[in-house]
Computed example of a mutant assay.
Amino acid sequence: MTQWWFNHKTGEVEEGPQSLGVDRDGPFDTREQAEHAPQIAAERARAWANDDASEADRG
């Protein structure tokens, strides 16, 4: 099964892990998912920040 990666350094989607791990996100099951990697990462970062803020408010 093919896996897809998003390379942050080049902004390109890669079929299979072609670049250094530090430069890429993945694996993704589809090319379309890999194309949206920056948005997915931003959404997850916002969710983690909200969770951290909630924990700080309770603490």
Results as ranks from 00 to 15, higher is better:
S19G: 10
A45D: 15
G11H: 00
E15D: 05
Q33C: 01
A47K: 13
T10Y: 05
D52A: 15
A41D: 14
W48S: 11
T10A: 03
A45F: 11
T30K: 05
R46H: 12
G11S: 01
N50Y: 10
G26M: 03
R46E: 15
K9M: 10
R46I: 10
E14F: 05
T10S: 15
A37K: 02
D23N: 15
E15G: 06
D29I: 05
T30E: 09
L20M: 09
E32K: 11
D29P: 04
S54I: 04
A47D: 15
S19N: 13
I40M: 10
D23I: 05
D23Y: 14
E35N: 08
R31P: 07
S54A: 09
I40G: 04
V13Y: 00
G16K: 01
R24V: 11
G21N: 10
E32H: 07
Q18I: 06
A53L: 07
A45G: 09
G16T: 01
T10F: 02
K9G: 11
A37M: 04
T30F: 05
G16F: 01
A37R: 03
A34Y: 02
S54D: 08
E43W: 07
P38V: 01
V13W: 00
G26D: 05
G11F: 00
A45C: 08
E14Q: 15
K9I: 11
D29S: 10
E43H: 10
S19M: 05
L20V: 07
T30W: 06
R24Q: 14
E14R: 12
Q18N: 07
A37S: 08
G26I: 03
D51G: 04
G16L: 00
P17Y: 10
R44W: 09
G21Y: 09
D25F: 00
D25V: 00
D51V: 03
A34T: 02
A45T: 14
Q33R: 01
A45L: 14
L20I: 06
R24L: 10
T10I: 06
R46A: 15
E14C: 09
I40W: 04
E43A: 15
R44H: 13
A42L: 10
E15S: 06
P27Y: 00
Q39T: 12
Q33M: 07
W48L: 15
G16I: 03
G21D: 14
I40P: 03
L20T: 07
G11T: 01
E12G: 03
P27A: 02
A47C: 04
A41F: 11
F28A: 06
S54M: 06
R44G: 08
F28H: 10
R31D: 14
P17F: 13
V22R: 14
P38D: 00
P27Q: 03
A53G: 04
R44A: 15
N50T: 14
E15F: 02
R46S: 13
D52Y: 10
E12M: 07
E32L: 11
E12S: 05
D29A: 14
E32D: 14
D23K: 08
R31M: 11
P27G: 02
V13I: 01
E12W: 04
G21I: 07
A49L: 07
E14W: 11
R44L: 13
W48I: 09
